[in-house]
Simulated assay, not measured.
Amino acid sequence: MEQLTTHDRQDIADLLAKYCLALDGRDWAALTQVFTEDAIAEYEGAGTARGLAAITDVVRRALEPLDASQHFLATSLVETGEDGATGRTYLIARHIAYRATGGDSFTVGGTYSDRFVRTPAGWRITHRRLSRVWTEGNPAVLSTPRSTR
């Protein structure tokens, strides 16, 4: 593949942001603008999801019960790959459940390792792996039903 242009890099950066905004906004339909239909996502701690519908189901089940979440991305390196591009991006994801016993916050720090492809609709993620590097707080947050506040 040819070198990535500045425009390609910005489009991929926007794609990464769309993912975070979709998760935190609970806009599951927006994930169609992030992943290919046959994408694979390996979420450490939650298993592997094959296909857009399965990926949507995994993140929906993890996040819908929460009162809030906020995904932050930083340090991202995107490079030309064999069939598109590859990228590694640091993340910090904060999860909040007000009814959780033992504290209402659980934070995960990790790295997304992605493969991107250019489609007629723009860049999409075809493979994602989330590797946890550290956690802080109360892991019970991820299994606490949503509060009624």
Rank of each mutant, 00 (worst) to 15 (best):
L91S: 11
V141N: 03
P145L: 07
L21N: 10
I12Q: 03
C20Q: 10
Q10P: 05
G137Q: 02
A41D: 14
A46E: 04
G122K: 13
W123V: 15
A29Y: 01
S76M: 02
Y98H: 12
E42S: 10
A13K: 07
G84R: 09
T6A: 15
L15M: 14
A100E: 01
R61D: 12
G51H: 12
R146C: 03
I55C: 07
R149G: 01
A121L: 12
V108E: 00
V108H: 03
T80Q: 15
V34M: 06
F116Q: 02
T75I: 09
D104W: 07
R94Y: 04
E64K: 13
V117R: 01
G47A: 05
Y112M: 02
L130M: 09
R61K: 15
V133W: 04
S69K: 08
V58Q: 12
T107F: 06
T111E: 12
R146Q: 15
H95S: 09
A121Y: 05
T107D: 10
T75K: 06
R26Q: 05
D114T: 03
A100W: 01
W123Y: 12
D104F: 07
F35C: 03
I125M: 15
T111N: 08
I55S: 06
E79Y: 03
G45Y: 06
L91N: 08
L15E: 15
W123K: 13
S76D: 03
D24N: 14
F116I: 09
T126S: 15
D14L: 15
E42T: 08
V117T: 04
E82N: 09
F72Q: 06
T148D: 15
W28C: 00
D14C: 13
A41Q: 04
T89I: 06
A30M: 13
G102E: 03
D24F: 05
G25P: 01
Y90P: 02
Y98I: 04
L4V: 05
D8V: 06
A74K: 02
A68W: 10
G110E: 06
G87N: 11
L31V: 00
R124Y: 00
G25E: 06
T101P: 05
T75M: 11
L4M: 00
R132I: 12
S113G: 01
E64Y: 15
P65V: 06
R146H: 14
H95T: 14
L91H: 10
V133M: 06
F35M: 02
T80Y: 03
G84Y: 02
P139C: 00
A62P: 12
L63V: 15
A53D: 13
S143N: 03
S131E: 07
D11G: 12
L130K: 06
D104I: 08
T48H: 05
H7R: 10
A41S: 09
R88W: 08
A39F: 01
A97F: 03
D83N: 10
Y43P: 02
R61V: 01
E79P: 04
E2M: 11
R9W: 04
G110M: 04
P139N: 09
A121N: 11
Y19I: 08
R149F: 10
D57A: 15
E64F: 09
R60W: 00
E82R: 10
R129M: 09
S76N: 01
T119E: 07
V133A: 13
C20K: 09
M1G: 10
S143Y: 02
R99F: 03
P120C: 11
R60G: 05
G102R: 04
G47Q: 05
S131F: 02
V34D: 02
Y98D: 13
Y98W: 10
Q10E: 14
